[in-house]
Design a protein around this nucleic acid. Structure first.
Length: 239
DNA sequence: CGATTTTGACCCGCGC
DNA sequence: GCGCGGGTCAAAATCG
């Protein structure tokens, strides 16, 4: 899907916005309980360095407030066709942190994880024309299901990395099909694919900075830098 | 040829 | 206990 999509996610974000490789300024902050597998509903905060060429409206890095639910931020990893013009279409992303109960924008979760291991969930509601928001990781689709709660089918993806059980669900917003609801379920236990060997560190170092919930503790201080490299190989063909 | 997507079937939890 | 709904599996098809 999204076959014709050239660049998506971080990659596109970078390409479209002349986004400089994130330096020390870029970082994600997540509470240990969220990064680890405890699934606690803690504060979520992210920081993004201001992209060079985009309008403040769109690319201005928002720091998500630490509210219980219903976070808001500018799109950290929007699915873009290409260019800032396209980016503008994704001008807004609502990010909702889903506590382990699984409620938020998606209402499924009856089976899902409900009752199994408590894995962190993060949900995004993103205005986008493409369904899959690339986050730098390689996802493999393993299912598609029409759900009652929505006229739009829900797609199920699993991280391609061996041993990584992170999943994500993608579906169009039932109320407004222009929005894509993406739910990440779990935490990656590996670095963003694409970087051969050297950069691979034991995923869970004591690094204070970790990647976003949809990425993971893998690339502590330079999540995007890693992803940008990775995206150059993986995203385009994948989505 | 390998990786990924598609799609129907199956499984499981939950509510009635 | 049964039916429903959601999530996952797995074989076949497709694509690069």
């Amino acid at each position: 899907m999204a076959a014709q999509l050239g660049l998506v996610g971080h990659e596109a974000y970078a390409a479209a916005c002349s986004y400089p490789p994130p330096a020390a300024a870029s970082s994600y902050f997540f509470p240990p309980e969220l990064v680890a597998d405890s699934g606690g509903a803690g504060a979520v905060m992210m920081e993004f360095p201001p992209p060079a060429a985009c309008t403040a409206d769109y690319c201005l890095p928002e720091i998500m407030g630490a509210r219980t639910h219903d976070y808001y931020c500018s799109p950290p990893a929007p699915a873009l066709a290409k260019g800032c013009a396209a980016a503008a279409e994704n001008e807004m992303m609502n990010m909702s942190y889903v506590d382990d109960g699984g409620r938020m924008t998606m209402m499924g979760g009856s089976a899902g994880n409900g009752g199994r291991q408590p894995s962190p969930r993060i949900g995004f509601r993103t205005r986008s024309e493409v369904d899959v928001l690339d986050d730098g990781f390689k996802w493999r689709k393993y299912g598609k299901k029409a759900v009652k709660s929505s006229p739009n089918p829900r797609n199920y993806y699993r991280c391609s990395a061996e041993g990584c059980g992170v999943k994500k669900r993608v579906e169009r917003d039932r109320d407004d099909p222009r929005y894509v609801v993406t739910t990440y379920d779990g935490v990656h236990n590996h670095a963003v694919p694409g970087r051969g060997g050297a950069a691979q560190q034991p995923a869970r170092s004591a690094a204070p900075l970790v990647a976003a919930p949809w990425s993971a503790p893998a690339a502590p201080c330079d999540p995007w830098g890693t992803q940008l490299h990775a995206a150059a190989h993986s995203s385009e063909s994948s989505y």
